[in-house]
């Protein structure tokens, strides 16, 4: 769980950087619908930024299959763990 938390912290940092207008909470349940700036284009940028930051690699269909940040964090944890 703490590993998940560590990843989520890093992801949160990227989200705050990328979606500078968003000041709501970032949790495992956050979805693209919660963040106004989070469109398909920025989604791809977010994914690639997370890949670079965490040293992981997502497939394109995998990127589209995440239902919320939790899915993403668990997938990243699986790769780095």
């Amino acid at each position: 769980m703490s590993e998940h938390q560590a990843i989520l912290d890093k992801v949160t940092e990227i989200i705050r950087d990328l979606f500078d207008e968003y000041d709501g909470p970032v949790t495992m349940e956050t979805t693209a619908n919660d963040v106004a700036q989070w469109d398909s284009l920025s989604h791809v940028r977010l994914m690639v930024m997370i890949e670079m930051e965490l040293g992981v690699h997502f497939g394109t269909s995998e990127m589209q299959s995440f239902k919320n940040l939790g899915d993403l964090v668990r997938a990243a944890a699986k790769q780095s763990g």
Partner: peptide
Amino acid sequence: MTKPILSANF
């Protein structure tokens, strides 16, 4: 090209 990806499903 939109944001269906993480949106809530039916």
